[in-house]
Amino acid sequence: MAQAEALLKQREQASDRYSGREDDPQVPRQLRQSRHRRPLPEHLPREILRLEPEETCCPACGGEMAYLSEVSAEQLELVASALKVIRTVRVKKTCTKCDGIVEAPAPSRPVERGIAGPGLLARVLTAKYCEHLPLYRQTEILTRQGVELSRALLSNWVDACCRLMAPLDEALYLSGDGGSRSLSHRLVKGIAYSRHPPGAQHSEPETS
């Protein structure tokens, strides 16, 4: 019986922790009078949904309604990531008096001649090295979002990004931050395994 009560108490405490309720552990659960939820972080953006009463006049006497107060409650919501295509149009102009032609310069890209924007590249790197999400699973997620990208292509993006960040990594290493060197080793090993895993046949890399 004592073991069952202890297990029940642990599950009740876990329920309070996951639901965000803070209760005084010194007070028995059945005697607690109030519960307080932890406030949501202030740095998160807020979307205000303001609801006005449907009644424009008093339902009891028909009199005019005046503002009294407000009741508010917050709900934590997840905004799903979405893919979009950015089409860059470079305008050309010609002189009306001679054969001179001018053209807007092309913006720089993180991966030369690559189709991935900086936000997508950052997401791939974060998912791989911070969330430990393999590239083949990332391709499956992107496919469900309507875009088919090969695992080899994502691997080449990772390779290009690591080469792009190499000067920064070297500068951090020379400044005495030893942690950056361990990060560099993890990136290099991850790239090698992603491009040529044990037992896999080597294929020509994709450049798009």
Rank of each mutant, 00 (worst) to 15 (best):
G117P: 01
P105L: 01
A66P: 09
R29P: 14
V158I: 02
S72D: 08
R29W: 14
C130H: 10
T56V: 15
P39Q: 04
K84G: 11
G190R: 05
H185R: 08
R17P: 12
Q201R: 14
H185V: 08
P205K: 02
E112A: 09
L78G: 15
N156Y: 06
T88W: 05
E112T: 03
T126G: 06
E112W: 08
V91Q: 00
T143I: 04
L172D: 05
V188S: 03
Q33L: 14
C57E: 11
L83V: 10
P198W: 05
P107L: 00
V102D: 02
L44C: 12
R38N: 07
L31Q: 04
S34C: 11
K189G: 03
L68G: 10
C61N: 09
D24R: 04
R46Y: 08
G190I: 12
V91P: 00
R32T: 11
V111R: 02
I191E: 01
T94R: 10
C57K: 09
L183R: 09
Q3M: 08
P134D: 04
R113N: 15
A166M: 14
D23F: 05
T143M: 09
G20H: 06
G176S: 02
C161P: 01
A104L: 13
P25Y: 04
I115W: 14
R32M: 11
D99M: 02
L149P: 01
K93Q: 07
L8M: 10
C58I: 00
L68I: 15
V188H: 10
V158N: 03
I86P: 00
L49P: 06
L125K: 02
Q138V: 11
E170W: 11
K92Q: 13
L135D: 00
D169Q: 12
D177T: 00
E42S: 08
G62V: 08
V89P: 09
G146N: 05
E131Q: 13
T56E: 13
A200I: 12
H132G: 03
E55D: 13
D169H: 08
S180R: 07
A122T: 14
G63C: 05
Q75H: 12
L154S: 02
E55V: 03
L133C: 09
K84T: 03
L164W: 12
E52I: 11
S108P: 13
G20S: 06
A14D: 13
E52M: 10
T56W: 04
A200Q: 07
E170N: 04
R137D: 02
E54V: 13
M1Y: 15
I48S: 13
R50Q: 08
D169M: 07
T126F: 05
E54K: 03
P107H: 01
Y136A: 04
E47N: 11
T56N: 15
